[in-house]
Design a protein around this nucleic acid. Structure first.
Lengths: 342, 342
DNA sequence: GCGCGGGATGGTAGCGCTACCAACAAAGCC
DNA sequence: GGCTTTGTTGGTAGCGCTACCATCCCGCGC
């Protein structure tokens, strides 16, 4: 009647194999692995020896099922290739690499619907925490996050109404600061060039507009945007469009650094002097901005740090002490460089 | 004695809730969800209605435990921010987005030890397939892959001895082709500039060496490398080192496009004419290579396609028909541009 | 000497699902 | 008409682990 052992399990050692070998109960092995301080030294050593000898690795699925909690962080970003999110994700990975937590990474492709679907999938695993990019979730997504039963951190931006916690900075302020810098440096016909135009880009544009209006320089024809995903080559094209539209253009605030680089290259190609004829400001301050010739002024953002902080906050919440400040603004910094040094 | 329902599970509906509501057995619900064609139309409809009404989502952990197989693809890459791997990962995600498979992404940080550790963790979940970057696994990692009990695809490179399947191209041939192009264009004192110098970079260097030796141009002083992670700014620095070492340098083959871009910017800054005084070749052909001024010659590689193909092969193997060609070489293409057009 | 608190250990009963096999009805065969 | 065959459905028994509670033992106070 009694089968010798797992007919399905492919013969990997289980917790009871370890228990038998160590001469203890299965539950003691479980404890020794999860809360060693609750097991006596002697047993702990015996159990460790048995674990090593058998090469036992706990089955995370069984663990999750029994404890109704998976040791998984769900992470949702709109793009995997955009360096900005890659940095955030890297921060998350680095912060979690010594923890028992695994990471489930989802790509929403900047789509609210995909985000909902992934949230559904991720939620079904009872994750330990959820980290999502952005603050513009659909109502359905928001509900899913609220009912996830775990800490939730919205990253990249700050806003007034966190689902749970937030780490980021103000894109509007970033856009305004960049634009004000151009104005301050004496540029007047300052264009905004933006690709993708996701919600964060929209807010940068809003910041641009505020600064321009305040200075009495706003003109809708100065704005050139497209929903097409951002790239260096697209930056070049958009700049040509912008220049064709407004030949008197004397500065551009770019949605991001890829676009800015494309603008710079086109200036080289068309023999337009930077910064004398055209001033350029980027956004994010990728490494290449300071190496470019001329080096490009940009808004430095702390992507890696956002990832790290998000994990730290989630971990604290899991441990029971939710940080009292639920919205953390990591700010940004204007890096003044040659591209605007008139 | 009998508790009403799950005291632990947080009250989410289970398969038996659905079964009760639909008036069928739990196993029939399970089948209706996984192999609908084995359940009659009528029941299928009833069950679907119950699922929708209750908002039932199957618990992947319970599923994995019961079936001894998780619907998870394990993916191991050495870096998350390197655009090259990000593209591969994007290809994997896109290919899997309509499937029931989830993705478990691990970052090995170019470390064999981390790879082993992650393989251990990933293996404990009984993944449906494993995709790993590179072909230089440690013996322990190789054993783990062989015993994983699932399809394994090594990506980025091809080699003689696949664990199971492979998709990639020859980095050695790529390096040789790039170097031969420079020689053909009349450059003679051609340097190799490389950062990180992971196994793939080493093979590109080997290709460079073969081409240089064949042309009787090889000189070890032409090689400038560092284990430091690659970046545009590093490219600039390495180029200055190379030029200081060999002032007669008239061309460089760069390890990758970031380095090449750094070299180009330094040439601008030092007023070195490209391509007349110095020829530049990159590797991977990122979008910005064709936009740069002058545009940069590079070896185009098919990263996204590698990701897609790897998934397709794994999926085929899961479905039972392993592709007969277990090693797929996607090749590369030399993109001749202004930076070598003497 | 007795009872009692507290730390260490173990047994039992699931977690939610699916593999396996049994049961049964309808259909096809001689 | 009795037989097998085929297709549909359900029951039972786990998968490997942990929550919960029971048990045991030690040392302590009175």
């Amino acid at each position: 009647m009694i089968k010798p052992r797992s007919r399905r399990g492919g013969g990997r050692p289980t917790i009871s194999d370890v228990a038998r070998k160590a001469g203890v109960g299965a539950i003691t092995v479980s404890r020794a692995l999860r809360e060693p301080e609750r097991v006596s030294q002697d047993l702990r050593r015996q159990i460790q020896a048995a674990v090593d000898e058998l090469g036992y690795v706990p089955d995370p699925n069984a663990r999750a099922l029994a404890s109704a909690r998976a040791e998984v962080f769900g992470v949702l970003v709109p793009s995997l290739t955009n360096n900005v999110f890659a940095e955030v994700v890297r921060g998350i990975y680095d912060s979690l690499s010594d923890s028992p937590f695994r990471i489930q990474l989802g790509n929403t492709h900047y789509s609210g619907l995909e985000e909902e679907r992934l949230l559904q999938v991720f939620g079904s695993q009872r994750p330990a925490a959820l980290i999502v990019a952005g603050i513009d979730q659909t109502p359905a997504s928001r509900k899913l996050l609220e009912n996830a039963g775990c800490p939730v951190v919205q990253v990249m931006e700050t806003g007034p109404d966190p689902v749970d916690m937030m780490v980021g900075f103000s894109h509007l302020d970033g856009g305004r600061t960049a634009t004000e810098h151009l104005i301050e440096m004496g540029y007047r016909r300052i264009g905004f060039i933006g690709a993708r135009m996701d919600p964060r880009s929209q807010r940068r544009l809003a910041g641009y507009r505020i600064a321009m209006e305040k200075a009495g320089l706003f003109d809708p024809r100065l704005i050139t945007t497209t929903p097409v995903p951002s790239s260096v080559s697209l930056g070049r094209e958009l700049f040509r469009d912008a220049l064709a539209k407004v030949p008197t253009l004397d500065g551009v605030f770019c949605n991001n650094d890829d676009i800015a680089l494309g603008v710079l290259f086109e200036c080289h190609r068309a023999a337009i002097d930077v910064p004398k004829t055209i001033g350029i400001v980027g956004f994010n301050d990728l490494d290449m901005m300071q190496v470019a010739f001329p080096s490009i002024t940009s808004i430095r953002t702390y992507r890696y740090e956002i990832g790290r902080r998000a994990v730290a906050m989630a971990l604290a919440a899991i441990a029971g002490d939710r940080p009292q400040e639920r919205v953390v603004d990591l700010g940004f910094e204007l890096k003044r460089r040659e591209s605007t040094a008139r």
